[in-house]
Design a protein around this nucleic acid. Structure first.
Lengths: 341, 341
DNA sequence: TTGTAAGCGTTATCAG
DNA sequence: CTGATAACGCTTACAA
């Protein structure tokens, strides 16, 4: 491979000068610059980034881990990350952790090995490797969380207000005449699930239907939504609305209704969460909460860059706007509320 | 940061010995090894991969570019890639090219800068940067193509037999009594589209219905499928089956039928391609061709490793098995074929 | 079995 | 404006 040395030799200048032409062209005399550039072209020189990184202690890379890359929600977030990173001159090292702690740790180790300048993790578990880093470097540790937010971690994060969103969905359901509502949540240990659950319960209690709330646990997958819905339908003929904490689970629930011959929204309404692309194409189209997926991704990058460029003094919690999206899977319930005027 | 020097000093050995303990422990005396390991632990040492890479000229990374990471087909392939790469000790640098040539080139440049040891590209366009590399290094150029296959490129590739798969789908349709079949293809410039088109046309002609074949072009997206289907339905009341070159387009077509009140499979049957997860959850569940997505991903990595480890003498075309999946969106056509006995 | 020392290809400092 | 030179942290002959 051709090195800067070769270029310098070919142009009849020192290595330093050749390097300068590439890094700070304005510091070099016009004529020399042209000569060097010609050699660069002629030899087809490209900088060896590894050597450059060693010298500068910058890699121009960021690691991003996701629980599941084939989950449409995450893949949209990733897209946002990738876009923002690329724009800022960073490449994305992608890690699919499959929700396994060990894989999370493995990717975190890469940060220690200086394979990247920073790391964005989209799950909720902070790898112990990162925890240690955080302990040592505090806010200067180049770590950002996305989609979820756990204040106690001391890590910057980009996310929506999950509690409020869930609360709004529930209120909408009550306003439309539903009382017996079932929830299909995500894994209990995720703060995201807890936040939404908190919001949903609050709305239920505020409306006086706390007792009527039924809760099933899922794992965000289609199948778990289907199973949870089937479970709900056994023996219980009261539920008129199911609020799922992900669109995929909602699609699973829709399938369950179809399998058991229950009409949606005729008999049971379904509301999802995320607004993945497929939400509008299933039958009936799925009412849901739109998360600004790409925006969340972009924001995590922005937060990370703030840390890398030392513009950060304390962890930032960036709350992005969500939006309720009414679609046909949501219909009126059997208890028209008293007139509100 | 602590370096191997610090470790060596703490353990009272030379840098070389300390390094050896990490790389070839068996070459070092038990006692010294223990001492070094203790210092490693005590100091919390982790190897600086950048320095190591500079020395060894290996990065342990591979670049993978996809036209669209949020496409469920590709995200499954990526998952296979990631899994195989990780197993072989490689990390994946992900590039979402958004089908833009310039972004493809940018990622390809990274290979030149030695940011990775090799590259897998899932689109069909060979970036010119890679073409040059290929010209120079021939089969030793660490480049592999996935999902698509263009023999003339001289690049190893993992894919299914697209022509045969399309041919089989058409034959199945004819066997079920369909004659007036419409195709919704991918972009014309993709070899994948061409291969499937070739296969489909062959089947049509073999069955004597070449004239009845209608072709619309899509871009694999849901919306393009929907639009193409709507287009097909205008004025033409003959089509009884639509074969889409991706499940997403098929889902779009399904939506179009629903919007226009046409029964599926009652009036028109739909067949997709890929067997993405959602295929079985739409209504009606989608008949399709299952591609071994994860397997394709894994295979591309295997092919790349073969090159990196110099086990390769000429480009390999790995054809993986596909499978037709019958589901409810495919029903009988109006022309029951003559008995075949 | 261990140590010495020579790079890998950059970048950055300091003179000139 | 340009050149000499010293790192960056690691690996690996080669020597002891």
């Amino acid at each position: 491979m051709t090195t800067i040395r070769d270029v310098a030799a070919a142009a009849g200048v020192s290595r330093a000068t050749a390097a300068r032409v590439l890094a700070n062209p304005e510091m070099v005399a016009e004529a020399t610059r042209a000569r060097v550039m010609k050699s660069v072209e002629a030899l087809g020189y490209t900088r060896n980034s590894v050597a450059a990184s060693l010298r500068t202690t910058r890699t121009g890379r960021i690691i991003v881990t996701v629980p599941d890359i084939s989950n449409p929600f995450f893949s949209r977030v990733i897209r946002g990350v990738e876009e923002a990173a690329q724009k800022a001159g960073y490449a994305v090292l992608l890690g699919d952790t499959r929700n396994e702690r060990e894989r999370e740790e493995q990717y975190a180790e890469m940060l220690n090995r200086r394979e990247a300048d920073g790391m964005i993790f989209l799950g909720h578990r902070l790898p112990t490797v990162l925890a240690r880093l955080l302990e040592r470097d505090g806010v200067r540790a180049p770590i950002v969380n996305g989609c979820e937010f756990t204040p106690s971690l001391g890590v910057s994060s980009a996310h929506i207000d999950n509690a409020r969103a869930a609360c709004q969905v529930m209120q909408t359901l009550y306003d439309m005449g539903h009382r017996d509502i079932a929830l299909i949540t995500g894994p209990e240990e995720s703060p995201l699930t807890r936040d939404r659950l908190t919001g949903a319960c609050k709305a239920a209690e505020d409306n006086g239907y706390g007792q009527a709330l039924v809760v099933q646990t899922g794992d965000f997958s289609i199948e778990s939504g289907r199973r949870a819905a089937l479970e709900l339908l056994v023996g219980d003929r009261r539920t008129t609305a199911i609020f799922c904490f992900s669109d995929e689970m909602a699609i699973g629930a829709l399938t369950a209704l179809r399998e058991t011959g229950i009409a949606c929204p005729g008999t049971i309404s379904i509301v999802g969460f995320d607004d993945i692309q497929m939400a509008r194409y299933v039958e009936p189209p799925l009412a849901t909460v739109r998360q600004p997926m790409a925006e969340i991704g972009r924001k995590t990058v922005e937060l990370l860059l703030d840390i890398l460029h030392r513009r950060q003094t304390s962890p930032v919690s960036a709350t992005l706007p969500h939006e309720f999206v009414a679609r046909r899977s949501l219909g009126r319930g059997p208890h028209p509320p008293a007139s509100k005027t």
